[in-house]
Design a protein around this nucleic acid. Structure first.
Lengths: 237, 237
DNA sequence: TCAACACTTCGCTGTGGAACGAACCATGAC
DNA sequence: GTCATGGTTCGTTCCACAGCGAAGTGTTGA
């Protein structure tokens, strides 16, 4: 199939009010059951089933069976970032000088399963600047930026309680640069990015807004970022 | 209107075979007449007219009247990058270790009106590393990375014959970071990026493949990049 | 002024696909 | 076993919209 038809097909998967609502609901990276999604999308369960089948078949979603529930989530970070790109387009083009993304979303949010926004970009920069994260030269994939932890970085992450062991047999990238749409700079993605966010949530550095992908940087988180990463971030909210 | 409905609407603009073909045809940044686009899309002129009206109204395209012709082109680089993001999604997700973008596209291509791909990213890095390009701290738009030429950079660009005067009354960014989808790193966008590409094409450093956004780095271009930017790039093709 | 051309508007047709309810298949609880 | 619950499959309805041709508008150039 030619590229243009593929493009139309992929866009078609998003171009429906119900499916768009489901995808937006999943943008925070959490998994949801079909019923939960049918409520978000405001359609019947049978309709939902058809939509989810379509999205799964096209590679937007992945499914996990658990008992009689089926949990759906975004299949990978690429999907999340493409959705964010499209969301940016809905804002009025060239709208004077005001940034297009709402401030609270721009500051800290979840992108699939890792952290995105101003905070994430600042953190990513600091990790590289301090030599905690090292770029791997990769001949096979010169495009994608890949990282590994330096020995000092490993120490730091262990000290903070980040789980550094990816699940066995996982084919996922260990650590890589992921484009931050609102910031237009990279933040940390891959397994390490996900593990880091998990720790930050567990430790209450960040709090999820219920049913939303906005993340709130707590006072505790601010102090911890300064302490562990020597990163001073302004307050917000 | 809520974000999810906007998302569906924007995706809907792309989710049609004819419109997708038109958008792909415009991805190289060149402007085309309605008739040319109707041929690309393989539909009648009346159908084409309706499609183009829709795309223009939604902010995907901009139009310039010239005599009895109407020239259409992508409205801004954000549109081009969002389209590229979607195109990436059509590739099989997590397809083992092979990069998703075809090699010739990944190496050098036009993204709207400036250069993208491996070459563009390498160039962008070098411009910053050598201090020819300087980051502007911008309080109003902390997200977008903006640049200006240093005095040595200005000299360099003038020596190469790049036109450094933006059109008067242009509200376009002078120079900014633009995300490179295949590389996942930034390249140079904005007015300066466009002027640079224009010079490179005029000087035959790069050649356009007819009716395609693939760019071919010529022998002359390779030598010039080394001479002016101290940038050694491998051959391709 | 008129013919040629580029494009738009209008009216009509046909189809893809989104919606629902009812019936059906699982799984888990009792 | 029986019942409740989560999800899918099927059949049907219905509407949005892409498609076309014919007629209309506007511009150029002879």
């Amino acid at each position: 199939m030619t590229a243009d038809l593929q493009l139309a097909k992929v866009a078609g998967a998003i171009a429906d009010a119900a499916r768009a609502r489901m995808l937006c609901a999943l943008l925070d990276g959490r998994a949801r059951t079909a019923t939960e999604l049918s409520i978000s999308a405001e359609v019947s369960s049978s309709t939902t089933s058809a939509h989810l089948a379509k999205l799964t078949e096209l590679g937007f979603l992945s499914v996990v069976r658990q008992g009689k529930h089926r949990y759906f989530q975004l299949a990978n970070a690429q999907v999340a970032t493409a959705l964010e790109a499209l969301l940016q387009l809905s804002a009025p083009p060239e709208a004077s000088f005001s940034p297009t993304t709402p401030a609270h979303l721009r500051y800290a949010r979840s992108c699939y399963d890792h952290l995105a926004g101003t905070v994430a970009v600042a953190l990513h920069e600091q990790l590289l600047r301090q030599g905690w994260l090292i770029t791997i030269e990769n001949q096979l994939q010169p495009g994608n930026q890949h990282y590994q932890l330096s020995s000092s970085g490993t120490q730091l992450f262990i000290a903070m309680g980040v789980d550094l062991q990816p699940k066995p047999r996982s084919r996922r990238q260990y650590a890589c640069a992921c484009l931050d749409w609102s910031e237009r700079k990279a933040h940390l993605g891959g397994y390490l990015g996900a593990a880091l966010l998990e720790m930050m949530l567990a430790q209450q550095w960040l709090q999820r807004e219920p049913d939303d992908r906005v993340l709130h940087l707590t006072r505790k988180g601010q102090i911890a970022l300064k302490q562990h990463f020597a990163l001073s971030l302004p307050e917000r909210d």
